[in-house]
């Protein structure tokens, strides 16, 4: 039977009383990484959280900083035969689009956002944490073992996408100016480079089927390495699309197709549109996640 993005790895609890791993509490990233390995290989490679942690350069947690970074985990997974791709900052739109294409994500989050919800796996934890966030949205939180009343137990439920986005955006990172959240609409983590075939691919509408409801005429230029668009004239909030630095977009149009899906269409200076830049929200896709992903390939 073909393996698809509906493949679900075994849930791995980090709790030492369940995992049997003495450093379980310090190793959420290793447990989320183990689930990523299983998903990426359709179960062919299925390490434990302990095995992932032991493959890192910090098998014994540093008492001053016992957790792990994404690169420590991605290096460990490579040793175990699984290639994943780390990212220091990615736009949520691109994450949404890549999940739609079958990539699973090990997502860095700030637990202070999840802690007060019914999904909490530790009502006393506020810090940086890591979750397995598959295309299905059925998040695996290594803390969600239902060990007592008030602790959520993983059972394949889809987490609200806006909860995931807010938790990811609150992840605390270090800038040269000091610590701060990575920012709403962004995330740090890694994704499965290889992945099962997507269950379904949402096709963009034909141009003729699109009803453009609003158009913003400005020039947008990508700066930096992470596809942040700056506008002319300046706009307070940059727009996160991933594209090569120097890429130019002259209009961003809101559109709605007959099925009620909403789209954002980016047009190049020569009037062409790259279908890869159509992004969607609508039935099954929450509003507010209409950020496009994909390369611009025809900028003059």
């Amino acid at each position: 039977m073909a393996c698809t993005s509906a493949f679900t790895p075994a849930f791995l609890a980090q709790n030492p009383a369940i995992s049997g791993y003495v450093y379980g509490w310090s190793s959420c990233a290793a447990f989320a990484g183990a689930e990523a390995a299983s998903y990426s290989s359709c179960g062919a490679i299925h390490p434990s959280g302990e095995q992932v942690r032991n493959a890192t350069n910090e098998p014994i947690p540093n008492p001053l900083s016992p957790g792990l970074t994404i690169t420590q985990v991605t290096d460990a997974l490579a040793k175990l035969g699984v290639t994943v791709t780390p990212f220091n900052r990615m736009g949520w739109s691109e994450i949404t689009a890549m999940r739609g294409a079958g990539h699973g994500f090990s997502l860095c989050v700030r637990y202070s956002v999840i802690r007060p919800t019914r999904f909490t796996g530790d009502p006393n934890f506020y810090g940086n944490h890591q979750l397995w966030y598959p295309p299905s949205g059925a998040t695996m939180d290594p803390l969600a073992d239902g060990r007592r009343a008030g602790i959520y137990r993983y059972h394949g439920e889809v987490y609200p996408d806006d909860l995931m986005e807010r938790a990811a955006g609150a992840f605390l990172v270090n800038y040269s100016s000091g610590p701060g959240p990575i920012g709403f609409g962004y995330a740090q983590g890694f994704y499965t480079t290889s992945h099962p075939a997507p269950v379904a691919v949402i096709e963009p509408p034909q141009e003729s089927a699109v009803r453009v409801t609003d158009t913003v005429h400005q020039q947008w230029t990508a700066v930096g390495t992470n596809g942040v668009l700056r506008t002319t004239p300046a706009r307070s909030a940059p727009i996160a699309y991933r594209m090569p630095a120097g890429s130019v977009v002259t209009s961003i149009a809101e559109a709605e197709d007959p099925a009620g899906n909403h789209w954002r269409l980016l047009t190049h200076p020569d009037g062409t549109r790259n279908p890869a830049w159509l992004l969607h929200y609508g039935p099954g896709i929450p509003r507010g996640h209409d950020w496009a992903a994909g390369p611009i390939t025809s900028v003059p």
Partner: peptide, 30 residues
């Protein structure tokens, strides 16, 4: 209409470490 990303520094942050939950959990067996 839509939710736009925060204004963030152009500087890309370095990978940050995770923290340690379970601090108030009972001690567990090996």
């Amino acid at each position: 209409m839509t939710t736009e990303p925060d204004d963030v520094p152009e500087e890309e942050p370095e990978p940050a470490k995770t923290d340690v939950p379970g601090q108030n959990e009972p001690e567990e067996a090996e």
